[in-house]
Design a protein around this nucleic acid. Structure first.
Lengths: 221, 221
DNA sequence: ATAGTTTATTTGGGTTACCAAATTTTTTAA
DNA sequence: TTAAAAAATTTGGTAACCCAAATAAACTAT
């Protein structure tokens, strides 16, 4: 008996979830094959296996869709992936763009409570280093409404949840001013003249142009 | 292509290393099969594969022995296993007896430098929670001479490296007095009358009988 | 030395996860 | 509507790991 079987299955479910989530269009065998970089024959075989296990359903028009059971499994894998990414970046000082391959392996570790303990150890992060939300232990994603920093209230704790524009220049700029996704900040002032934003991060004051600030999506803690 | 292939191979090498290390007696196919809980036919097949890869040699009398290459690979796996165990116990508050299965999975994570970063994050531990030495990144085990606490010098920083007797009663006792493998202690006094040992651990004073103290194997920092 | 036991090896299978190539079905577009 | 393109499916493989059962070879103890 190989104890790696779940590994492959989990990758199918995860990939399927991402396709369904992103492209609002139906997912067919070809699309899934391309996303997994596998032969369509291989994928068809596995999809049928997942179907008998009630993790996906195959609609009359051949569209492949996750069942609730499959979706939950996919979200648990995504949850593990994102929690591990936080660990790698926060604790082992990896860059946010270096962690994907490792998290790809770590997400398949089987355990009842490892990711729960890890989550607690990391201080219950709500987003991963890329700004993606971390599903809870039941596979639910809390829909957190984010807003541009320019529209957020003053003098309140805010968390940088995501970026409006993730261009390389903007990422470098963010890096230079010392901000990153997940950071907790507070607006101290918005300049009437040019709408530039002054914020406090780790006791230090940072001034951002309106253009930069409107690119930071935050939520109120 | 399955990216799990190394998983199985690493288990063979690790198990072989442990058998060679423990039982000074030669390791044959049956012994390895029993240790791995696999069919002798299966093991024979794999051993031949490892032989063509120059990771084991098969002596004229059928004894299976790791080559230097195989030994090094085995020790890297053992190193990863033990570092992960330290992480699980020190950071995620697992009990030392709960971590084996998880470490068994984590030891196979492939990465250039994950275990180096993890090791640094953990403060370069020299032993795992069971008191076993952690090989360095080249697979070398620093032979550290340990001595019973009863023979160690006074007023010097000592680390508890291992236990002479690991009976359940002794483990419970250790737990009760608040000591565990890896702790740094210092002998403040040895009583002439009954050779009982008074030591300092985290500013607090603990008195151990001579019997207990002679069971604690320490090394001088 | 030889019967009995243990160990090694061979043989024939099984499963999972993959592939290429051929074929069928479905869709699309002229 | 029908030919071409795209998608789905079938067919016949492969490799890695595993097994049970049969056989061969090597010890072992009387």
């Amino acid at each position: 008996m190989q104890h790696f079987a779940h590994h492959s299955e989990e990758n199918y479910l995860k990939t399927l979830y991402k396709l369904e989530d992103k492209q609002k269009t139906k997912v067919n065998n070809i699309a899934l094959s391309k996303a997994l970089d596998l032969n369509p024959a291989t994928v068809l075989e596995m999809v049928r296996k997942l179907n008998t296990k009630r993790m996906v359903e195959i609609l009359p028009d051949k569209t492949i869709r996750l069942t609730d059971k499959g979706k939950k499994k996919a979200l648990i894998v995504i949850r593990k992936h994102r929690i591990w990414e936080v660990f790698l970046v926060d604790k082992l000082n990896y860059k946010w763009n270096e962690v994907h391959n490792l998290a790809e392996q770590l997400e398949h570790i089987e355990s009842d409570d490892l990711e729960k303990r890890l989550e607690a150890f990391l201080g219950f992060p709500s987003v991963d280093p890329h700004g993606d939300l971390i599903p809870d232990k039941d596979g639910k994603i809390k829909k957190i409404k984010t807003q541009p920093l320019t529209e957020a209230p003053l003098k309140k704790k805010l968390t940088i949840m995501a970026l409006g524009d993730s261009s390389d220049e903007f990422l470098k700029y963010l890096n230079k001013v010392g901000l990153t996704i997940g950071d907790t900040i507070e607006i101290s002032d918005i300049e009437d003249f040019d709408k530039s934003v002054t914020l406090i991060y780790k006791k230090k004051s940072i001034v951002l142009s309106n253009a930069a600030a409107s690119n930071l999506l935050v939520n109120i803690l």
